[in-house]
Simulated scan of single mutants.
Amino acid sequence: MIEFIFTKVPPVYLIIGSTLAALFMGTMAAIVRSKAAKRPVSVKKIILPPIFMSTGALMFIFEEFRVAPLQIVEAIVVGMLFSIILIRTTNFEVRENEIFIKRSKAFVFILFGLLIIRLIGKLLLSNTIDVGELGGMFWILAFGMIVPWRIAMLVKYKKLQNTKGVGI
């Protein structure tokens, strides 16, 4: 079924559609992130996003999305490099005996900056790499970015929780 869809839709439409979808998702992520800063953080709120995102790995059941081992390594490394920026700009603060994410004006710019870098990379690579394979690579990149970021968030959260004795 999925192979049928890919053979009938011109690749340029897949690229445009996935670019628009990425922009929409990036905008939604920025909105959700800004609203989340108004509520206390919990361990569950930190660890659930990567768990939910992990279901996306089911795409690799289909051959169109499978990625070569070298491309897997490249995508993970790039994702981990991007995560460094998120790790450095995500901090917590204690308010009313609860732990909150500190609002950072830079976060929205960083989020959209990373999104733009990914979109430019996708547009450049779409000429040489199949669209499905590229989709798999960018999922790996995103997962390689969110997992280290969320682990670092959890470590920072637990450290603040233990030193301040809040949110327990």
Rank of each mutant, 00 (worst) to 15 (best):
G165W: 04
G79A: 12
L115D: 01
L141C: 04
F52T: 08
W149H: 15
F65R: 14
Y157L: 04
G121H: 05
P10V: 10
P69I: 11
V67S: 03
S34N: 13
I51R: 00
K38F: 07
E96W: 03
W149P: 02
L48A: 13
I151P: 05
M80P: 05
K38R: 12
M28R: 14
F52C: 04
M153L: 10
T128A: 13
A37D: 09
Y13T: 07
M80A: 14
M80H: 07
F92W: 03
P69L: 01
L14E: 11
P11M: 04
Y13V: 08
L70F: 10
M53Y: 01
F138A: 14
V131F: 02
I47D: 03
F60M: 08
W149Q: 02
L111F: 12
W149K: 11
S54W: 03
L86C: 00
V94F: 12
M25T: 15
L14D: 10
E133A: 14
R33V: 10
L141F: 06
F112V: 06
K45V: 03
V78H: 06
A68E: 14
F24R: 12
L58P: 05
G167L: 00
F92C: 09
L81G: 09
V166Q: 07
P50D: 11
I110T: 05
D130C: 04
F100L: 14
P148E: 11
G17T: 05
I47Q: 02
I120R: 00
P69W: 06
G17I: 03
A21G: 02
G165I: 06
S34T: 14
I72M: 00
I87A: 04
F4Y: 15
